[in-house]
Simulated assay, not measured.
Amino acid sequence: MHSQDDWITTPITPDLVRGALDLERTEHGLLPHRLPARARAQNTDGQLAMAESQPSGVRLALRTRATVLELDTLPTKRVHVGVPPRPDGVYDLLVDGRPAGSGSVAGGNTLTIDMTTGTASVEPGPVGTLRFADLPGGDKDIEIWLPHNETTELVALRADAPVVPAPDAGRRVWLHHGSSISHGSDAASPTTTWPALAASLGGVELINLGLGGGALLDPFTARTMRDTSADLISVKVGINVVNADLMRLRAFGPAVHGFLDTVREGHPTAPLLVVSPVLCPVHEDTPGLLAPDFSGVAEGRLRFVATGDPAERASGKLTLNVIRDELARIVAQRAADDPNLHYLDGRELYGEADAAELPLPDNIHPDPATHRRMGERFAELAFTGHGAFTG
């Protein structure tokens, strides 16, 4: 074992990072982004800006014979006024593709959000260190998955042996876009979000554009997908359009067509899977807006409620059932000329029987066990048999 004086500091360069679409140079190091600079420049939504900077699916991919690794990062912790504090973000370690540990980084910046006023403020904090020791000897491939729900600036990487980028495994790349559920809300760790689990089971490389609160058919997101190299593509859309009360049925259909048209400009023949919303009882037949319910906060519970009126469906307000019908119609219409376009009803990933067994704790987001179930089901439905991603 070398002394720490002999350790090697490896510059964190883009060839060590996977799953990010942009790396912003900051005063501390590199900040991974999941939307490129041009898309970020067209966005004025603070929620989306926060979500795309949270590195869901982003990981360092290394080859080394090191037995100890240290990663300095500057996390940004989220605190919601009046809500119990969130645990620190989790980093997952994989050695030769197998789980080999996890950890967290204390300190960092603090982002305080007041959901009642819509305001936010940031308090600067210190850089922290993640340490993985007692790694197996010999050359090995290592992945460090960054916290899916915690903005993370990469500051420094140290090891007791040289570190080089992991070789390309030659696996197909799966580009997925969705809402906070795809982002990984309430999953236990970054490798156990449902898309990460499905990617592992399907043997593919994941680029996760699951954006909490941000699956809103934004044209800049469609252009990002168009311009991103990928072999397999999926778009899971619906819940955010409803809970933001963003558009009516008249606008929704053309927006879906436009989004898919743009994706197809860059990927004319790739398997493209449109996934409708999973079951969410509060929005099945009730439109948005979605609002926080603070009545259980004293007991450590925050829930969300739909504030719309089911009667408003007659004037074109959207619910999940309306959206599923429209998505199925659009895909059936387009599939006549696009044999590589497919549809999956999200209730096959999480439906009524699942809700009875594993209810959504806050009425919107699945718990860790449900993420695992959804990942396993998506892998089976998409990557096996006659699934959209077989072959």
Rank of each mutant, 00 (worst) to 15 (best):
T116K: 15
T116F: 03
T117Q: 03
G118E: 08
T119S: 11
A120L: 09
A120D: 02
A120H: 04
A120E: 10
S121R: 14
V122N: 05
V122D: 00
V122P: 06
P124S: 06
P126M: 08
P126D: 13
V127T: 07
V127S: 00
G128I: 01
G128S: 04
G128W: 07
G128Q: 03
T129D: 08
L130I: 06
F132D: 04
F132T: 09
F132Q: 13
A133Q: 09
D134W: 12
D134H: 14
D134T: 10
L135A: 14
L135W: 03
L135S: 10
P136G: 13
P136Y: 13
P136T: 13
P136C: 14
G137P: 08
G138Y: 10
D139K: 09
D139P: 10
D139S: 11
D141H: 07
I144E: 05
I144R: 05
I144A: 07
I144L: 15
W145I: 09
W145L: 11
W145T: 11
L146F: 05
P147L: 09
P147N: 03
H148T: 08
H148Q: 14
E150Y: 09
T151D: 09
T151M: 12
T151K: 14
T151I: 15
T151S: 13
T152W: 03
T152A: 03
E153L: 03
E153D: 06
E153P: 04
E153Q: 14
L154Y: 01
L154D: 05
L154H: 01
L154Q: 01
L154R: 01
V155S: 07
V155F: 00
V155G: 02
V155C: 00
A156S: 14
A156I: 05
A156F: 00
A156D: 00
L157V: 02
L157G: 07
R158Y: 09
R158L: 04
A159Y: 07
D160M: 10
D160W: 08
A161H: 14
A161E: 14
P162T: 01
P162H: 02
V163S: 02
V163M: 04
V163A: 03
P165C: 02
A166Y: 01
P167F: 06
P167Q: 05
D168P: 01
D168C: 00
D168W: 00
D168I: 01
D168T: 04
A169L: 10
G170S: 06
G170V: 00
G170F: 03
R171I: 02
R171E: 13
R171K: 13
R171P: 13
R171F: 05
R172N: 04
V173L: 12
V173P: 04
V173D: 08
V173I: 15
W174F: 11
W174Q: 01
L175Y: 01
L175H: 02
L175C: 03
H176T: 13
H176S: 12
H177F: 10
H177M: 14
G178Y: 08
G178E: 11
S179T: 10
S179N: 12
S179F: 11
S180L: 09
S180T: 12
I181W: 06
I181T: 15
I181C: 14
S182I: 06
S182P: 07
H183E: 10
H183F: 04
H183C: 08
H183S: 05
G184F: 07
S185F: 12
S185G: 13
S185W: 15
D186F: 12
